[in-house]
Lab assay of single mutants.
Amino acid sequence: SIKEIEKEEIIKVLKEVNFNKKLASEILGIPLRTLYKRLKEYGI
């Protein structure tokens, strides 16, 4: 599903940037606030 793909992509990017959420949100092209929402939604 799209949610699974998105979750995997978020985890992959977070690992690449050593869990720097600000940098991860910039790489993913989403606002930091949205990233936090996704992390909560996906239980990351």
Rank of each mutant, 00 (worst) to 15 (best):
K7V: 12
F19G: 14
R33E: 15
N18C: 11
E26V: 13
K3A: 14
K22H: 09
E26G: 06
E8A: 15
I27G: 02
E4H: 11
K3H: 13
K7R: 14
K15R: 13
I10Y: 05
R38N: 06
R33Y: 12
A24P: 00
S1C: 13
A24W: 02
K22M: 10
E9A: 14
L35Q: 00
G43D: 10
L35V: 02
K12Q: 09
K7P: 06
G43I: 05
R33A: 15
K21R: 09
T34A: 09
L14V: 03
S25D: 00
A24R: 00
R33M: 12
I11G: 03
I44N: 05
L28H: 01
K21F: 15
S1F: 04
L23T: 06
K21E: 07
I5K: 14
Y42I: 10
V13K: 03
K12G: 05
E41C: 06
K3W: 10
V13T: 07
G43K: 07
N18H: 10
L35R: 00
I2L: 14
L32R: 03
Y36H: 11
I5A: 13
S1Y: 03
E16S: 14
K12F: 06
S25G: 04
E9K: 15
E26R: 12
E8G: 10
R38D: 03
L28D: 00
E6I: 09
P31A: 11
I10F: 09
E26F: 10
G43H: 10
N18W: 07
K3R: 14
F19S: 04
L35S: 00
K37S: 08
P31M: 05
K7E: 06
L28V: 02
L32E: 04
V17P: 00
S25T: 04
G29D: 05
K40Y: 11
K40Q: 12
E16Y: 10
I44E: 05
G43L: 06
S1K: 12
E41K: 06
T34H: 08
E9L: 15
I10C: 04
K15Q: 12
Y42A: 06
L14Q: 00
L23F: 06
K37M: 12
E9P: 02
N20P: 01
R38K: 15
N18F: 09
G43W: 06
P31V: 04
R33Q: 12
K3Q: 12
L39T: 02
N18S: 08
S1V: 12
L28F: 03
K22F: 10
V17A: 09
E9V: 12
I2Q: 14
L14F: 04
E4M: 10
V13N: 01
P31K: 08
Y42N: 03
K21C: 12
I2V: 13
K12Y: 05
I2E: 14
E4P: 09
L28W: 01
I11D: 03
K22W: 09
I5S: 11
A24T: 05
N18G: 12
L23H: 07
L39W: 03
L28N: 00
I44P: 04
R33W: 12
I27C: 05
K21A: 15
I27F: 05
R38A: 14
I30K: 01
L14P: 00
K15T: 11
L23D: 04
K7F: 13
L35E: 00
G29C: 04
K22E: 07
G43N: 09
E9T: 14
L32P: 04
I5D: 10
K40I: 13
K7Q: 07
K3V: 11
Y36C: 13
A24Q: 00
E4K: 10
K40L: 14
T34F: 06
K15A: 08
T34Y: 08
L39E: 01
I11Q: 06
G29E: 05
L28C: 02
A24L: 03
S25P: 00
L14D: 00
I30S: 01
K3T: 12
L35H: 00
K7M: 15
S25L: 02
E6K: 09
E41F: 07
I44H: 05
E8P: 04
Y42P: 02
G43P: 03
S1Q: 12
Y42D: 04
K7G: 05
I30A: 01
I5L: 14
I2N: 14
E41M: 07
Y36Q: 14
K3F: 10
K22S: 07
V13Q: 02
T34N: 07
I2T: 13
E16D: 10
R38Y: 15
I10P: 00
K37R: 12
I5V: 12
Y36E: 15
K3Y: 10
V17E: 02
N20W: 05
L14K: 00
L39Q: 01
V13D: 00
I30F: 04
G29V: 02
F19I: 01
E26D: 09
L39K: 01
